[in-house]
Simulated scan of single mutants.
Amino acid sequence: MKLALKEATIAVLLPCYNEEQTIGKVVDDFRKALPTATIYVYDNNSTDKTASIAQSKGAVVRPEPRQGKGNVIRAMFEDIDADVYVMADGDDTYPAENAPAMVDKILEGYDMVIGDRLSSTYFQENKRPFHNVGNRLVRSAINGIFGAQVKDIMTGYRAFSFTYVKCYPILSHGFEVETEMTIHSLDRNLRLYEMPVQYRDRPKGSHSKLNTVGDGIRVLSTIFRMIREYKPLPFFGGCGLLIDLVGFGFLLSVMFEFWRTGSVPRIPTLIGSVLLILVGLLSIITGIVLDVLAKNDRRAYIHTSNLFAYLHRRQREHEANRSEQ
C-alpha cells in the first residue's frame, strides 16, 4: 500500500548542540517545505538558547543527556513513530527544499535516501581542507571494500523508512554514526537512493562541533570495526594468508638450508615458522566461522525488517478502515 505525501506521517529529526544562531531558521524552513510534518529537536546538553528558540518556533523539543550525535539519533529512532523520517542538522547547512523529494522517494519504496553534498557544492563551500580529504578517503575505502558507488558516505541529510529506523541498531556514539549507517545499508543490500543537494557552509559566527583529528580517528576506527564485523572472511582470511606467507618464507629458508647441509641449525626459526603458519590457519578458520555467523545475522535482519514492514502495513490499513467508518 503506497501512501501519498499528504497521507504519510512525517517526522523531521534535528539533533542539536548549541545551535541558537541557526535553529530558528532551520525549523521555519522545514515547516515551509513539509507543512504536515512534526519537527523534533533533540537538545544534546546545549548551554545556549537552542531549546527555547526551537520551542518558540513550534518544534517538539526533547532533551538527550547522553552526549554525542549517535546517542541523539538512537534516542530519536527509539522514541518517534512515523511513516517517513527526514534527518538534518540544525546548523542550516542543508536546504529544506529537497525534503519533499526525499520523502517521495521513501514512499516509492526506498529504505534510505542520501542527501549527496559531494556532487554539488560541498568542496567549494566547505572551508576545512582536511574534511574534504577525509570525505574522499572514506568514500574510496568503503566503496572499494563493498563494491559500491555511494558518492557521499558521511552526509547528515538523509530520509528513512519506518522499517529502516526500527530495525537499525545504532552502536556509534558520535559523528561516526553516518558512516555506520552507510556501511550497514550496503552490507544489508538495502534500497538506497542518492539525491544531490546544495550544501552551504555554516553562517559566520556559527562554529562546527567537529574535531578534524579526533572525529577522523573515530570514523576510521568505525570503518575498521565494521569491516571486521561485516566482512570477517576477507578480514581474518586476508590477515591469516599474510601470516601464513611470512611463516612459509621462514620455513623455506630453513628447509633450503637443510637440503644444502643436511642439518637444521636454526631450530628457533623452524619453531617460529610453524607457529606462524598455525596462527594464520586459525585466523582463516576464524574468518570462515564468523562469516557464517554474519550471514545468519543478515537473515535475521531480513526476517525482522519484513516483520516490521508487515506490522506497519497492517497498522496503516487498520487506521484507514477506522477513518472510513
Rank of each mutant, 00 (worst) to 15 (best):
K2Y: 04
L3A: 07
L3M: 12
T9V: 09
L13N: 02
P15I: 03
Q21T: 10
K25M: 10
V26F: 02
V27W: 06
D28C: 09
T36M: 10
T38Q: 11
I39F: 04
Y40K: 00
S46R: 01
D48A: 01
S52I: 12
E64F: 02
P65Y: 06
R66N: 15
R66W: 00
Q67S: 10
G70Q: 04
E78H: 10
M87A: 06
A99L: 06
A101C: 01
Y110D: 08
V113K: 07
V113L: 11
I114N: 13
L118N: 06
L118I: 08
S120D: 12
F130D: 14
F130R: 13
H131C: 04
H131I: 11
R136T: 12
I153A: 10
P169V: 01
P169W: 07
I170K: 10
G174I: 02
G174V: 01
E180K: 01
H184L: 02
H184F: 15
R188V: 03
L190P: 04
Y193N: 03
Y199V: 03
D201H: 14
S208F: 06
K209T: 11
L220G: 03
S221T: 14
S221V: 13
R225P: 08
Y230W: 05
K231G: 00
F235Y: 15
G247N: 09
G247F: 04
G262V: 13
S263R: 15
R266Q: 12
I267G: 13
I271M: 13
G280W: 11
S283M: 15
S283I: 00
L290R: 10
V292I: 12
L293H: 05
L293P: 00
A294I: 04
L307E: 13
Y310F: 12
L311S: 04
L311H: 08
R313L: 15
